[in-house]
Amino acid sequence: MRSLIDILELSTQEIDELIATANDIIEHPEAYREKCRYKKLATLFFEPSTRTRLSFEAAMYELGGQVLGFSEAQSSSAAKGESVADTVRTVSCYADIIAMRHPKEGAPLVASMAASVPVINAGDGGHNHPTQTLTDLLTITREKGRLNNLSVGFCGDLKFGRTVHSLITALSRYEGIKIVLISPDELKLPSYVKKDVLKKKGITYVQTRDLEAVMPELDILYMTRVQKERFFNEEDYLRLKDMYILTPDKLHNAKSDLSIMHPLPRVNEIHTSIDADPRACYFRQALCGKYIRMALILKLLEIE
């Protein structure tokens, strides 16, 4: 029995296999409609997250399975003081696989150590979010046709943005990746990610505050939201939240085949007038999220 807590638990070969399965599901959805018949997914969301939870639920429904769970800690026994381990031991009796989101870092790992069914980390605070990374990798593959030889710009909150850390870590295993880090000084990529991932793997990277200056070289622009919930101090949040707002004029020198990605939800960091630009692929990215989760559920349930 296997869980997925951190994207690095998957080899690049396994990621390739998941992407291949997801692509096959997209091409032949009818072949997968009964794959998880009589199987149940428990979505244990101790922290609200509409789109991640809905994409997991949609994934399970499209595989012919069923879903049970809760969408906030208040409606779970955690509100009565139950431990994560006890919760998942109990839920293991009722479901075949668990997707868990928790505001505390490491909670899904604790869950995977106690559960008797596979646990998928659906986000633990600012720490890991492997299914978002898988979503991003599927999106990049579909948009670019490859995961190597890409110049990838990350813009916004690179300090607390777990999707950024995970995607950089995942991309660092591929050849010819250049990382461009665009952020205010206060939200720079943590030095341990630079040291443990970029420098260790010999990945070329640059840091800048000027998005427009680096725009021409980017194959992918990954925008992020400055997340209010990651700040202890509201003043800092208010000062930094509007630093980068992508508007059509800022794309004047961008490549014609640039892919603009965003893990969503956005607030105002990508102006809605960009949505109609074919280079904006964040809603296609959201769709990829469902398909890659379908592929992952099949893999962890060991269903061919």
């Binding site: 431990s83 994560v84 928790h102 505001p103 505390k104 870092e105 490491g106 633990d124 600012g126 720490h127």
Partner: peptide
């Protein structure tokens, strides 16, 4: 010492 760590709320871990 990380206040965001699960060990900060689950005393038995």
């Amino acid at each position: 010492k990380n206040p965001r760590c699960i060990t900060s709320v689950e005393q038995d871990l």
